[in-house]
Amino acid sequence: MFSNMFTIAQRTITQILRDPRTLVLIIIVPLVIASLFGVSIPDKMILNMTLPAMLATLILFFGFLLSGIAFLRERSLGTRERLMASPVSRIDILGGYLLGFLLFAILQTLILFFYSVYVLKVDFRGELWQIILFQILIGILAVSLGIFISAFARNEFQMVQFIPLIIVPQVFVCGLIFPVSQLPDYLQWLAKFLPLTYGIDGIRALMLEGKGLGDIGKEISVLVAYAGGLLILAGISLRRGHSA
């Protein structure tokens, strides 16, 4: 039933694995950013407090960038139109890309997390598997967001311009730099509609307060709803008969 979906996922993974430069960048860039973040905050207590939010932000950023650019490239090279002319369904295409990109988003997530814990010596509470599972959920959101936003860009240059529009405001408003409660009322109101707010709240609850996934049902529900909604919208943008 999902044979074509897995074929597309496998092809997406093989493409990246056969491009050594991209693969190395996928691994090295998160390490460089995490290292810079670590050494720029010498106070261990502040690092412990801020790193979970930074992890959520970086997962969103890298996942968005990877999937957005890669999906857009399919369109500019014409391979997406070729795929749309084949018997594969929209679910196969979206699911295939999601699975493929997600593998690398998870890889980046694990690199960031274990580097933070074992090299930067960041303390955390809570269950390791639950933290990783929640980070994967942020990764799914990031990939969905990248695929959806790529529908609005005509080339890679335009796609890159979406980063300051989609990611940077979330960095300022969602509690990475200042707690949301200290922001002006209208920004607090805005923060409620931004998915990174829930990503940061959730990961802080797990890593700093030692809570479990059962305690952050609201955050999980919002992220799942966001990811699902974005994928549905991406699916609409992919429909045959409107691929011009």
Partner: peptide, 9 residues
Amino acid sequence: QLPSLYNEL
């Protein structure tokens, strides 16, 4: 019209 292939493969 364009080859539309996966270049890395």
